[in-house]
Design a binder for these strands. Structure first.
Length: 1107
RNA sequence: GCUCGAGUGGUGGAAUUGGUAGACACGUUGGACUUAAAAUCCAAUGGACAUUAGUCCGUAUGGGUUCAAGUCCCAUCUCGAGUACCA
């Protein structure tokens, strides 16, 4: 009986599909186990042999767990939104949905033929409206949430509104936009509806903001940072520029700390954790404000309290008059504010810009306005006034007359709170910097701003203006790539302005330089040349003093950055302190001055969530009066509209701008998507709706919760039922590539934490264990081609060995070449050669090229001149590269399955090497695992049929079997699948030698092999007389008693070198072993009369004789 | 530059706590079967000398700890991955 793998595999694949063998139930008494693969993007090229690696590993694990009695969920689906289908659509007009559906068909066929135990009843596709309905739903949940720092979690936005209504935003501790202004409950309640929406948008976990984005003109879209490689787009390699656009953003920065902390409780690969840690980029230090001393535009010549604008002389008289005749409320409040009653000096009826404000604390930049009833009517004007004051760096808080008179204590408490919280805002008053070394603050000898910093133009003196502007222009011209490549050139310019040192009160020159990045921290640094190499180089270059503030350290050559050895000197109150203590004290003193505070800075930026693409999830958002509105969840999904063209519109709008019907129209419960005309012609009475959002969601939207949707994928009423979620909880094993470390895997953790906060999921980390499978690289084949430009000369190819031989080794070829080139008037030794790729499928295991195949493959080779080896063969040479179409090194699993079978492929992919490691594919090697399967088959059958009998297993049979059980279980636990394949080979080799025919042993063996080679295992199982699938047969139990040995072949070594072996009983004592070894003739021979100094006996292990 | 990972036969790779280096395969060589090929089976296969035992050298390099080091420690080199003027 032959091992007919094609027939067997087709038979069992059909059986599994028909019987839904691998369908997982949501309610089961068995313990759950959730094995997940990163779902693929179905590309047009189909699968190559490298793709299934991770799926095979997870499938082995899933099948193993079924044998161990678990209820295993092993789902699969498609991440089917994405750029390639869209690009294809742009080129051909083919709808991406059609392309995608075709590609999925190919993928499914390819996956099926490898025999995965996927539960296809749970399949999801991110581009399916039934699926993206829930992506849209989550977006709405995120929109309706804010991050409360006090409870350290996301909460429903209604809880924030409730606080605003009761007490304004003074006590709200939220993650929000930087430039949120303070308002009272009264303010809030008097805000227009639009104003309220604007304010809330500053707090929502997803928000619209004008952001600088990576715009790729060639692709017509925005790219995320992780979609850019070396300054060009990852896909296509097009240039990328910075551009400002209004975009949806996700406030992932709110979760920075929790994303960091969460890494500690999940079993993920260390390199992956490290790269997430890096990406989040936490650094601890302080934010410090340096007041600016000199203001150009005349400001600097005036005393600090002269804050009036150009028309202030006209206002001064009126201000004086108002001081004399205060309102009752003003008088009451002034009594409490004057004379530093609250600790800070206030002025009343003070001129700022073109306004007279009621009260102002100049040192804290806090304006207090007391309004009468009249102000209700002029809300708009007030808002404008506030805006102008804000621009001048002042924070404005307002109280009503009644509040001041009726509840002065509460008013004062509010003012007090603002005074305490207010570090003077960045703006005209000071420069805020972030530093990780506040201990070195006395070493500051200059400050450096990024050339793009907002303040630069405001503070530059007239004398320095030309230089500064020239420098800014020069840096703007340089691409980001140039700036990165050229780190060594030091450049910068002096602004002419000075800042005041917080402690020494000395003036510090303010420079600009492109080594300071606008996008990190505050875009400004306090430069400590003695403690930071970049500052040091800058100071050296521009001859800025380098004060030394370290005890006993020489800084004449380079900066000293070793925190652990730092002892501070020349630093007033910090003298003599080590780094940590100095840092604490410096922060404490800065806080006392109100010029700084301890701060933790993260590199992690909020994630831009808008893409100018067609083939992505539409937002469930329409706009009214410029403000975004969510469509009620019961109307979801908002389906992707049809468009004629997939390119951006002529006016530069995203592709959805081409849609004819893309307005939302809703009356009461009834809502639909209509054309603009229909919307405009509809009755405004009771109407909801407006123009729909033109952007679509990014690729990571659909992949950030798919693992949860698998738990209940066909539920149309909820994203998943509570019961399903409570049963499955989280992913037990997740396998996928490491390229998603800072993309998908970070965003998914963020969404999971959000879902956890809002009570939708029970776990705040979605995957307990994660494994990154390595890449299977291709082995490319090359031949040497002569570089000749003359068109009359045929293409010339030279066999690899011939190419490397010189005249002495192979005079025959040497002459042949010489002669050939002579014909064309060329000299052979002047000819240069290059390697060119040829199709790897034209090469056999001895690197011989199939010349006939080659000639058919490409016209170039048809009428070419070849220089073969002496035996007439053409040899290729090889190199290991990434598998790719353009390198002609792609091996298709279809071919492998047809020729060797899926089981051989599965075994071979595992056998190649450790799962996590990258390793080259070499088709020739598959004969090893294929041969093993044939040998396995022959253990059960020969030409006469079944060999197995009911005979009792021998001792050796059992020893082999149980050795194998033990090793395989250990290997699976360690994901060391390559070694378990060799264990199977050893086992089968041994059982063959033992001529084992015992049915019980062979039955156990079939189960052991089943996770790895499921088709042959099913066939053997059924031939052994079982009627059920092998998939849930209990895994054989290991029995250590079969492995007990009575003797051991001891290696006897002399001075650590093994010389001979000696079989001794294991129950011998140390002394008995020593005696037996010493009396052995070979020992005497080895010692040659010497007396050993020492004999080391490790019972059960080794004997070593020293001397 | 920084962070992490890795260097073992012709090749992919084994070696779980320091205890017989090179398991298991591929490839190569020789042999059996065959008209021949394929398939299958058997044998050899780290290097050098000796070929009957045997001896020496070998896990990137140099040192160290130890009775014993691929494994532990120090230094150096090379390759791979991630990240980058991160204050």
């Amino acid at each position: 009986m032959q091992y007919n793998f094609n027939e067997i595999e087709a038979k069992w694949q059909k059986y599994w599909a028909e019987n839904q063998t691998f369908k997982a139930e949501n309610n089961s008494d068995k313990e759950k186990f959730y094995v997940l693969d990163m779902f693929p993007y179905p590309s047009g090229a189909g699968l190559h042999v490298g793709h299934p690696l991770g799926y095979i590993a997870s499938d082995i694990y899933a099948r193993y767990k079924r044998h161990k009695g678990f209820n295993v969920m092993h789902p699969q689906g498609y991440d089917s939104f994405g750029l390639p289908a869209e690009q294809y659509a742009i080129q051909t007009g083919q709808h991406p949905a059609i392309t995608t559906a075709e590609n999925i068909k190919t993928y499914r066929r390819q996956l099926d033929q490898i025999g995965f135990s996927f539960d296809w009843s749970r399949e999801v596709r991110t581009s399916d409206p039934k699926y993206y309905k829930w992506t849209q739903w989550i977006f709405i949940q995120i929109f309706n949430s804010w991050y409360n720092k006090d409870t350290d979690k996301a909460e429903d936005i209604s809880s924030l509104v409730a606080v605003f209504e009761k007490e304004g935003n003074a006590s709200v501790n939220a993650v929000c936009d930087d430039e949120v202004e303070a308002f009272s409950a009264a303010d809030w309640n008097s805000f227009s509806d639009k104003r309220k929406q604007e304010v809330l948008l500053q707090y929502r976990l997803t928000y619209l903001a004008e952001t600088e984005v990576n715009w790729c003109p060639a692709l017509g879209t925005v790219l995320a940072n992780d979609e850019i490689v070396n300054g060009v787009s990852e896909r296509g390699g097009h240039p990328v520029v910075r551009k400002k656009m209004t975009q949806w953003s996700m406030r992932i920065s709110a979760y920075a700390q929790r994303l960091l902390d969460g890494l500690e409780k999940i079993d993920w690969p260390q390199p992956l954790k490290d790269s997430q840690t890096n990406w989040i980029g936490r650094s601890q230090g302080a934010s410090v404000v340096f007041p600016i001393l000199t203001f150009p535009k005349g400001k600097g010549t005036k005393p600090g309290y002269m804050t009036g604008g150009n028309n202030s002389h006209l206002l001064l008289e009126r201000a004086k008059e108002m001081r004399k005749n205060p309102t009752q409320a003003e008088a009451v409040l002034w009594e409490s504010l004057k004379g530093k009653n609250l600790g800070d000096k206030f002025r009343r009826q003070h001129v700022i810009s073109d306004f007279i404000v009621d009260f102002v604390c100049l040192s804290k930049c806090l304006v207090i306005e007391v309004d009468g009833a009249i102000h209700d009517a002029q809300k708009e004007q007030d808002e404008e006034r506030t805006a102008i004051l804000n621009e001048n760096g002042f924070k404005v808080i307002r109280f009503k007359n009644e509040e001041v008179i009726g509840d002065i204590d509460n008013v004062l408490a509010t003012i007090q709170k603002h005074l305490e919280n207010s570090v003077p805002p960045m703006g005209a008053r000071g420069i805020e910097v972030f530093t990780t070394r506040p201990d070195t603050i006395f070493g500051v000898s200059f400050m450096t701003l990024a050339p793009e910093h907002d303040l630069v133009l405001q503070i530059t003196t007239p004398e320095q203006k030309a230089e500064v502007e020239a420098y800014i222009e020069a840096t703007a011209k340089r691409s980001e790539r140039d700036r990165m490549a050229d780190v060594k050139t030091i450049s910068g310019a002096f602004t002419g302005a000075y800042a005041e040192h917080p402690f020494s009160k000395e003036p510090i020159p303010i420079w600009i330089g492109d080594y300071v990045l606008a996008g990190y921290g505050t875009g400004a640094v306090m430069s400590v040349p003695c403690g930071d190499q970049r500052d040091y180089d800058f100071a050296k270059h521009f001859n800025i003093p380098i004060p030394n503030i370290f005890e006993g350290v020489d800084i004449s050559e380079e900066a000293f950055a070793d925190k652990s050895k730092t002892v501070i000197a020349n630093s007033d109150f910090l003298n003599g302190l080590p780094y940590k203590k100095a840092m604490k004290l410096a922060i404490y003193e800065l806080e006392k001055l109100g010029q700084g505070e301890g701060k933790i800075n993260y590199r992690l930026r909020d994630a831009v969530f808008s893409r100018q693409r067609y083939w992505g999830e539409p937002f469930p958002v329409y706009y009214v009066d410029g403000m975004p509105q969510m469509i009620a969840p019961e109307h979801l999904p908002i389906a992707l509209p049809e468009v004629e063209k997939y390119l951006p519109t002529e006016t530069g709008e995203p592709p959805l701008g081409n849609a004819k019907e893309w307005h939302w129209l809703q009356y009461g419960e009834e809502g639909k998507v209509v054309s603009e005309e229909e919307f405009n012609n509809s009755s405004p009475l009771g109407r909801l709706g407006g123009a729909l959002e033109l952007n679509t969601m990014p690729g990571w939207a659909g992949s950030s919760q798919y693992f949860n949707r698998y738990m209940d994928p066909t539920n149309d009423n909820e994203i998943f039922s509570k019961e399903a979620m409570n049963y499955w909880q989280d992913v037990d094993l997740y396998i996928g590539g490491s390229e998603h470390a800072t993309g998908h895997l970070l965003y998914s953790r963020f969404w999971q934490k959000f879902m956890f906060d809002r009570g939708f999921v029970p776990k705040d980390e979605f995957a307990k264990k994660l494994i990154n499978q390595g890449m299977i690289t291709g082995t490319s084949a090359f031949v040497y081609e002569a570089i000749v430009s003359d068109k009359n000369i045929p293409n010339i190819y030279i066999s690899s060995k011939v190419f490397h031989q010189d005249s002495e080794e192979n005079p025959k070829h040497w002459e042949e070449k010489e002669e050939f080139f002579k014909k064309y008037g060329l000299v052979s030794k002047d000819i240069k050669y290059r390697s060119i790729h040829i199709d790897v499928n034209l090469i056999n295991s001895q690197s011989e090229v199939d010349i006939e195949g080659l000639k058919k493959w490409r016209e170039d080779f048809l009428d070419a001149k070849y220089f073969f080896e002496n035996d007439g063969k053409m040899l290729a040479h090889h190199e290991v590269e990434k598998m790719s179409k353009s390198k002609y090194n792609v091996v298709n699993p279809d071919d492998i399955c047809a020729e060797y079978g899926a089981d051989s492929l599965r075994l071979y992919e595992m056998f190649l090497g450790p799962l996590e490691q990258s390793k080259p594919w070499n088709t020739a090697g598959i004969t090893g695992t294929h041969g093993f399967l044939k040998k396995l088959w022959r253990l059960y059958f020969d030409d006469n049929g079944a060999k197995f009998t009911d005979s009792a297993p021998t001792k050796d049979n059992l020893k082999t079997l149980h050795k194998t059980i033990k090793k395989v279980e250990e290997d699976i636990a360690n994901f060391s699948f390559n070694t378990s394949v060799s264990t199977f080979m050893i086992c089968v080799n041994e059982l063959s030698t033992q001529k084992c025919t015992s049915k019980s042993v062979l039955e156990s063996l079939a189960i052991l092999v089943s996770p790895y080679a499921p088709h042959i295992a099913e066939e053997l199982w059924s031939q052994l007389g079982n009627s059920e699938s092998i998939s849930t047969a209990p895994f054989p139990a290991f029995d250590a008693s079969h492995l007990v040995e009575s003797s051991k072949e001891y290696p006897i070594s002399f001075n650590g070198k093994m010389r001979f072996k000696l079989e001794l009983p294991l129950d011998m004592s140390k002394d008995q072993i020593e005696e037996a070894v010493m009396s052995h003739e070979k020992t005497t021979q080895q010692l040659q009369g010497r007396t050993p100094k020492k004999v080391i006996v490790v019972p059960g292990k080794i004997v070593n004789i020293v001397g």
